[in-house]
């Protein structure tokens, strides 16, 4: 599966490389759009020293960790949210007559390698925050774990978004609220959001495990909402559950398509 994915992605990369000027233009512009959210954080902290009790560098750590996972998924799987377009254009049928999972085919369709620029940006912010903060070295092992967890959760969200579009062919924008909304949510310490919203983002959609719960562990802080300490380590389990649900939803979506013939 991974092999097929990489081969497909590589073909699109080669195609993009045929126009190097456009490619680098897109890399630069990708970075600029990606930097807008960062600029917002910097403007906020030009007006205050703490937000919800967190310093600028702590927020940048949370931003960097979540966005590293998000931008990687944006690069590799975000094309899944174009399913409604494929259904309307009839190209969905084409994916189904090939002997490879439609998930891989759709995720790689028109793969845009230039999006890697945003990954670099997110990585750089994370690197800066790690350098600026005085963190406990024995807790740093959590950082790769949280980025991995984040990748699984965002991938699952995009898969869910794709599955949902089999139903919402006329209103695919709804799913952006979950994918890009999750990106927006995880850029800030979750305690700035209302208690109910955070409960939803912990127990319904496990967005809190992308960077908040494990991030609290890395930063050596207690949860202002008082969740118990073991919750910091539940990320991988929560991600796995969401991934399984997303997989089921995806299969249902494909099955529905094949039985309604839309």
């Amino acid at each position: 599966m991974v092999r097929t994915y990489l081969l497909l992605a590589w073909t699109w990369t080669r195609a993009a490389a045929a126009y190097p000027a456009s490619f680098w233009l897109l890399v630069v512009f990708g970075c600029v759009t990606g930097a807008l959210d960062l600029a917002v954080i910097l403007v906020v902290f030009a007006n205050t020293t703490t937000l919800g009790g967190f310093s600028r560098d702590e927020v940048l750590f949370l931003y960097g960790a979540a966005n590293l996972a998000f931008t990687l998924c944006d690069l590799f799987v975000s094309n899944l949210d174009r399913i409604s377009q494929h259904i309307k254009a009839g190209t969905m049928d084409t994916f189904l007559i090939r002997p490879v999972s439609p998930w891989i085919q759709i995720a790689t369709d028109r793969f845009v390698p230039a999006r890697f620029g945003r990954v670099v940006l997110a990585g750089a912010v994370l690197g800066y925050a790690l350098g600026a903060l005085d963190l406990d070295g024995r807790r740093l092992w959590m950082i790769p774990v949280m980025v991995g967890t984040g990748i699984v959760i965002f991938t699952a969200l995009w898969t869910l978004a794709g599955a949902l579009q089999f139903l919402l062919t006329d209103a695919p924008e709804v799913t952006s609220a979950f994918t890009y909304g999750s990106q927006q949510l995880t850029q800030y310490p979750l305690n700035v959001y209302g208690r109910d919203l955070v409960r939803g983002a912990t127990y319904v959609l496990p967005l809190a495990f992308i960077n908040w719960q494990p991030g609290l562990y890395v930063l050596g802080r207690d949860d202002p909402f008082g969740t118990p300490g073991f919750m910091r380590f539940l990320g991988p389990a929560a991600a796995l559950v969401l991934a399984l649900l997303a997989g089921l939803a995806w299969r249902q979506g494909i099955r529905r398509y094949r039985s309604t013939g839309s």
Binding site: N47, L168, A171, A177, Q184, Y188, V192, G194
Partner: peptide, 27 residues
């Protein structure tokens, strides 16, 4: 339908951004 879907997404982002501003104005 598309417009209402967009309104939904705008509303979700409105809520998320509102909390950031609330935190800023509390500070």
């Amino acid at each position: 339908a598309g417009a209402l879907a967009g309104a939904f997404t705008n509303s979700v982002f409105g809520i998320l951004r509102a909390y950031i501003l609330i935190a800023l104005w509390q500070a």
